[in-house]
């Protein structure tokens, strides 16, 4: 149960942090799904390092994986918003 909460907490933290918000914003800048996913993923890669003070030894694999996944999903959602809500 605690591990599940740990994972849920990490996901929520990422959704409300750079991967979720900046990933969504970057995704909204393109109509290309791959570009949106890559932009979101890059934010997901950068975020754990930023919060770890750019010390790779303090970045846990699971945190990095979740951040990238959230970034990619946010980027794709941002792209969907762009396609649905804009004519340009």
């Amino acid at each position: 149960m605690l591990n599940m909460l740990d994972i849920l907490g990490t996901i929520a933290g990422n959704v409300l942090s750079l991967p979720g918000i900046l990933g969504l914003a970057l995704g909204m800048m393109t109509r290309n799904l791959l570009v949106a996913a890559i932009l979101g993923g890059l934010v997901g890669v950068a975020e754990p390092f930023i919060f770890a003070g750019f010390d790779a030894s303090k970045v846990e694999t699971i945190d990095l994986v979740i951040a990238i996944a959230v970034g990619v999903v946010a980027g794709c959602i941002g792209r969907a918003i762009r396609v649905k809500g804009a004519t340009v």
């Binding site: 605690l2 907490g9 929520a12 933290g13 409300l16 975020e47 919060f51």
Partner: peptide, 15 residues
């Protein structure tokens, strides 16, 4: 104090 870790702690506090 850090936002990301704070949100995680808040979620985990639901238990």
């Amino acid at each position: 104090h850090e936002w990301q870790h704070k949100v995680k702690a808040k979620i985990m506090a639901s238990k």
